[in-house]
Amino acid sequence: MVKRKQWSEWMQQTVFVGPGLLFFALIILLPFFMGFYYTFTNWDGVDKADWVGLDNLTRVFTDDERFWSSFWFTSKFTVAAVVTTNLIAFGLALLLTRNLKLKGVLRTIFFLPNVIGGLLLGYIWYFIFVRGFSSIGESTGIGFFELPWLGTPATGFWGIVIVFVWQTAGYMMLIYVAAILNVPKELMEAARIDGASGWRILLSVTMPLIMPAITICLFLTTSNAFKMFDLNLALTGGGPGNATESIALNIYKESLTNGRYGLGTAKAMIFFFAVALITLLQVWTTKKREVEA
């Protein structure tokens, strides 16, 4: 009897987890480990793949300024994007959990940009920046719109940040809304009776209780911002020069433009460990601050 039960357990696991696991292994794990192997070869993308040991890695670490400048760009971008996205998302969530008449409609509207694919969104915004902004600038003379948008390193950087925030803030807002609505009413009420101001309630009651949501949102934005590729490709293509080249785009160009797939996968491996390390650290620090009501 015990044996049969165990067997049936196993059976159920295989049937329900098996197919998913199989495809995960085929589509994610296998390429990942193959990439691990190609890191140590001089693969040209076609058929040549000779073992070169640590050559690729030493080259990236000692002789590849472009990679490290894209690493620096990506880090700056991540900090700017994560802070602004979460501040805006949290602000919107606070607003839309009030008794607003249009809150349903507004939540949908703010969420909508997330439904549009990144590349398409990038091209739409490219048009807005290059044509829209410049014609607004011409007719109104406002300095902000007269900047050569996407044409200089600074405008390129902030251009991508703006679109990234516009795209992701809606999604993060939904997570925050769900968390805020789950904060027990009686705690708020108790605090209010105790004479706490709205600001005090936000800081000492709401914030600690929605810490799990903050963990998730920070995690999602950090990893997405770090891996940002499609917006970069569509908006600036890494230009002007290589000033706005994210790591993902750098890897892409190294492999597909320069035809050095081995070196590209080596960079991708370094990139993977960097993303893993940073997100783990972030989750670890925010997790420590989570409390229960």
Partner: peptide
């Protein structure tokens, strides 16, 4: 020239056009 060189030249030209270098 092999692939990849003209792209990097293009990037350098962009920087020159933008008076960065």
């Amino acid at each position: 020239f092999p692939d990849g060189i003209t792209q990097q030249w293009g990037s350098a030209m962009q920087e020159y056009l933008g008076k960065q270098i």
